[in-house]
């Protein structure tokens, strides 16, 4: 299944669905609409995609988790998440799927920095503020995950059924990408990165406003910290289990 979370993406969602269909023609495409104010649902239905309309706005994590839950209920083996704003290039989907099927890992992340000709330039493409955040999270995640991760904020991810089961029960609700990695690490699941291409968003606007740009790292750091405290073997984890 290809899962497309969308919130007010009427300008982009139809072309994203069509592009995905052109690449993986026989895949089920599910658009999860996070209670958009515009015509996202109608645009997605027009292209023939299945639509899961949420009754009220849940935020990105809640929206993605709803899709994971449905995919798990319907017994899908693999789910690839593609953002509804057109930033992810669906031509990279086969690479993610192949890695999931062949590399025996639970999650594959599409990384815009892996194999980049100039990693520093690629990092600074989204602005210095975003670059600073990514660098910060890279350095925080490295000791937790026990290996480097080049693009921890990427929403272009694929998961297999084991990860799907975990995420359908517990998934971070806001800014979920980084915390999701720690949730997987808690269960000793494996992940890998494959290179992917990121494009300019087709329409709509980013949910990260100026105020949220400050709130985002605080929220994510706290979420990561709480998840680390719950790692099996930690003293707090043992106390909570008692």
């Amino acid at each position: 299944m290809v899962l497309i979370p969308a919130y007010n993406e009427e300008g982009a969602v139809a072309s994203v669905v069509e592009e995905v269909r052109a690449v993986v023609a026989d895949a089920t495409i599910l658009v999860v609409d996070d209670c958009s104010d515009d015509h996202t649902i109608q645009e997605a239905r027009r292209t023939g995609a299945s639509v899961l309309p949420l009754p009220h706005h849940l935020g990105l994590g809640g929206c993605v988790q709803a899709g994971y839950r449905l995919a798990f209920d319907l017994d899908f083996d693999y789910v690839i998440r593609v953002d509804g704003d057109g930033q992810h290039d669906p031509r990279d989907i086969p690479a993610l799927l192949t890695a999931l099927q062949q590399e025996n890992c639970e999650m594959v992340i599409g990384s815009r920095f892996l194999n980049a000709a100039n990693p520093r330039k690629a990092l600074l493409q989204g602005g210095w503020c975003r670059a600073l955040g990514i660098a910060l999270f890279r350095s925080i995640l490295r000791p937790i995950l026990g290996r480097p991760v080049s693009d921890p904020t990427s929403g272009f991810v694929g998961v297999n059924r084991k990860a799907l089961e975990v995420f359908s029960r517990a998934f971070p609700l806001e800014y979920p990408e980084i915390e999701a990695l720690v949730v997987l690490q808690r269960r000793r699941f494996r992940f890998m990165e494959v290179p992917c291409h990121i494009r300019e968003r087709r329409a709509g606007k980013s949910s990260i406003t100026a105020i949220k740009a400050f709130y985002f790292p605080v929220h994510v750091l706290l979420g990561v910290f709480v998840n680390v405290l719950l790692f099996p073997g930690s003293r707090i984890w043992r106390i909570l289990r008692k």
Binding site: R46, L74, D75
Partner: peptide, 19 residues
Amino acid sequence: QGRLRASTDVPLKPGQSVR
């Protein structure tokens, strides 16, 4: 009305994968 697409796109039978 475009409502049938959901049932035809998402199979209700178990054991289906992305392909």
